[in-house]
Amino acid sequence: MTNYKLTDQDFRQINLRCLCGFELGWNYERMQGSGYLYTILPQLRKIYGDNTPELKEMMRVHTQFFNTSNFFNTIITGIDLALEEEQGVKAKDAVVGMKAGLMGSFAAIGDSIFGALLPAIFGAIAATLAIKGNPLGLVIWFIAQMGVILFRWKQLPWAYKEGVNLVTKMANKLSAVTDSASLMGIFMVGALVATMVNVKFAWAPTIGSVPLNIQNNLDMIMPRMVPAIIVGLVYWLLGKKGMTSTKAIFLVLILSVLFSALGVLAKG
């Protein structure tokens, strides 16, 4: 039992340090380890007191390997501080276990929601408008990201008060949200394939003396079929062993130049 209770001012300090500095020390050895210590260092000093052996022990604990989504990391911080404030250095094993246990699952959810889904939806709208020379889509995306920052700001006091309960509650809500957001993401990709891959068949062989307009025939079957086929092929390619996104990008680049030079494809 320690004597210190976290205040709103502490939450503000942790959030500020987290938002401005959590990943500055990211390195291959312990990833966000030093960042975790940096965000809660003032609070650790208040809980254990300066120059105590307990503080040194906990500082050592908090520089160890840590890596999670930086959109969810303060949930773990909140639960951690509630435990340490209650039990002091005796909570060490529980804290280490909780950090290791939660960081993996939050990393996965955070990456899929904030790394893939939001860019898919807002990036798609912003990019489509940008290519027409209109920066308005970026404004919409910016507003959405401000909402995300607000969410990151609020989760620390929630987690501190509700502890592990919050994780269970959130897991239920998040799975419904993630599922629906992925649905919308997939829908948007479909829409993007139909509008943003502007290539067409340039190859027009003549049969006898009649030129055969392949592109027009394809349009009659299904408009925008060429982009759909290209995306399908790349999707299949990415499933191959040893294929990375960078390799795929260069492969597509080379093939596009080749087919363009042969007169099969053209910018449309």
């Binding site: 990709v189 993007l192 394939v193 943003m196 891959v197 502007n198 290539v199 982009p227 290209i230 995306v231 790349v234 999707y235 390619l237 990415l238 996104s245 795929a248 990008i249 597509v252 680049l253 596009s256 494809l265 910018k267 449309g268």
Partner: peptide, 10 residues
């Protein structure tokens, strides 16, 4: 013009 297709597939 083709490169966005890679982004969508990824």
């Amino acid at each position: 013009a083709v490169l966005p297709a890679v982004g969508f597939a990824i």
